[in-house]
């Protein structure tokens, strides 16, 4: 197998894309199959929760897209640290810590992250990480505070983390088209759409206060 030069680089990226795509699809199937029948409910509920709010979903996708735009090391650093930050936010929500303004923050996250992707912003890595981390914290907190009792905690947590991670992976996989000139346009457009959606969520959140 050719492992040097530009061709190798392309095939490596393609390998990454294929791997990420296959993993994204296969993981929930394999994971779900390992759940004892009666308790599948906990896993599925946990899995569906991050997908239940469109404001969450678009923000997660935006993080993935932005990571793809920022390239290395963000493209791998973000997927590694983000679930942890979000889980920490969830932890805070579960133990009843107070983190006010999460709804505004979540709506804002869609707007800001979408805008960053649209403008193809490239701040220094610590800034990007801090921004993503802060928003992730609020997202996690909102989920944690909403968690229903009476579920199988372990399975719920696993489903939840899996869904979040897969949304991320989807965002990155989509963002990989960034390699090609037409891809860059697609990604930025997607960012713009997300920003618009975020703006709308923000409007809603502010209006309902």
């Amino acid at each position: 197998m050719n492992t040097t030069g530009r061709d190798a680089s392309v095939s490596r990226r393609r390998g990454f894309a294929v791997g990420a795509g296959v993993t994204a699809v296969a993981t929930p199937l394999v994971a779900g199959a390992h759940i004892v029948k009666g308790e599948a409910i906990g896993f599925v509920t946990g899995f569906l929760h991050p997908l239940s709010g469109l404001d969450h979903v678009v923000a997660m996708l935006a993080v993935g897209l932005w990571g793809a735009q920022l390239g290395r090391p963000a493209i791998w650093l973000l997927p590694v640290t983000f679930p942890l930050v979000m889980a920490f936010g969830g932890f805070l929500g579960l133990i009843g810590a107070s983190l006010p303004g999460s709804e505004i923050a979540i709506a804002l996250s869609g707007l800001c992250l979408g805008a960053a992707v649209l403008a193809a912003l490239r701040p220094p890595l610590p800034v990007a990480a801090a921004m993503v981390g802060l928003f992730g914290l609020f997202h996690g907190y909102a989920h944690g505070a909403e968690l229903p009792p009476g579920q199988n905690a372990l399975l719920y947590s696993l489903g939840f983390v899996l869904a979040t991670g897969l949304l991320h992976a989807t965002g990155i996989t989509l963002g990989l088209v960034h390699r090609w000139p037409w891809g860059r346009v697609v990604v930025r457009t997607a960012g713009g759409t997300i920003a618009a959606a975020g703006g709308w969520f923000l409007w809603e959140a502010l209006a309902s206060r």
Partner: peptide, 24 residues
């Protein structure tokens, strides 16, 4: 990658086998 595919195949098979076994 082959190993990864094999591992996933095994997982799917375990799932099928246990599905046939009605999972506990």
């Amino acid at each position: 990658r082959l190993t990864l595919v094999l591992v996933m195949l095994w997982g799917l098979l375990a799932a099928c086998a246990t599905a046939a076994h009605e999972l506990r």
